[in-house]
């Protein structure tokens, strides 16, 4: 089995690694010690005409199947022989409609544990992309000069990182809340200005903060109102007053019994099928 496999691997190397149409396969390994390698599938980043993309055309390399131990920094290093790398963005899955991401707080949004990812690598020059498309592998993630931590090393350093600096946290909270308070104050200011002032068509906006506050527009509130109405109506109704009402309740009772009976029969059928009536 192993022998067969090895032979096949050798054969692959001679014939060139098979790659899907439009992509180029680059073998990648954690270090020189590993025998088998993963394959990065790379191509030039292109989008259809008219679609917006956050990454510059021609200069961006789209990389599939980036192993979990390979981070941005490492990918930059691996691809820099092809040309100067401007930026590397790792994502969980290909995302075309890329919106500008604001950097998230490391205290409140810890980065999830990575799996296999996709990468968008932007080179400074288009030549970087074409050079990458002829790159011969295998690439090595961790080398003597640039070791990448894994296993126990990584977990210990992760643990050290997870011990938060309370001062930094406090500063972050304070700056955020300051900005937030300003934002809220501005909104309130605006609402106050609009209060009671008709717009150009003559409509007056009624808010909760006015002199006569209105019901909040929430689903729960509207359901409550409906429920109240229903109860009011139910109070006025007469039950079992007419003969037909009597008849109907009786029939309803019978129908309930029948339904229950049907259900029970089904249950029994099922238990019989499972041989649930064998007592021992």
């Amino acid at each position: 089995m192993v022998a067969r496999r090895r032979k096949r691997v050798a054969g692959d190397l001679e014939a060139g690694v098979p790659s899907p149409p439009g992509y180029y396969a680059i073998p990648i390994k954690f270090s020189a010690k590993q025998r088998a390698s993963h394959y990065l599938y790379v191509r030039e980043h292109r989008v259809r005409e008219g679609t917006q993309s956050a990454w510059p055309q021609k200069r961006t390399l789209f990389v599939l199947n980036v192993p979990p131990y390979c981070n941005e920094e490492c990918l930059t290093r691996l691809l820099s022989p092809c040309g100067t790398v401007q930026s590397v963005e790792l994502q969980e899955k290909p995302d075309l409609a890329e919106s500008a991401k604001e950097p998230k707080s490391k205290f409140f949004h810890p980065t999830p544990i990575p799996g296999f990812q996709v990468a968008y690598v932007v080179f400074q020059k288009p030549s970087g992309v074409s050079a990458a498309l002829t790159l011969k592998g295998p690439l090595l993630v961790s080398t003597e000069s640039h070791p990448v931590k894994s296993g126990i090393h990584k977990w210990i350093s992760d643990y050290a990182d997870s011990v938060t600096d309370p001062e930094a946290l406090r500063v972050e909270v304070d700056t955020f809340m300051e900005a937030y308070d300003q934002k809220i104050a501005a909104e309130e200011e605006k609402a106050k200005e609009e209060e009671g002032v008709p717009d150009e068509e003559g409509w007056v906006k009624v808010t909760r903060r006015g002199r006569r506050p209105v019901l909040p527009r929430t689903e729960a509130a509207s359901l409550r109102v409906l429920e109240k109405e229903k109860r009011k109506r139910a109070r006025k109704e007469l039950l079992n007053f007419y003969a037909w009402q009597h008849r109907e309740t009786k029939m309803e009772h019978l129908a309930q019994l029948r339904k229950k009976f049907e259900e029970d029969k089904q249950r029994i059928e099922l238990m019989r099928a499972q041989r649930k009536f064998r007592p021992y």
Binding site: R5, V9, R35, A36, Y69, S150, I152
Partner: peptide, 18 residues
Amino acid sequence: PNIEAILEDFAVMGEGLV
């Protein structure tokens, strides 16, 4: 699935533990 590489990944990711 790239089984051989994955098996080696098992060892790489758990270096020191595996």
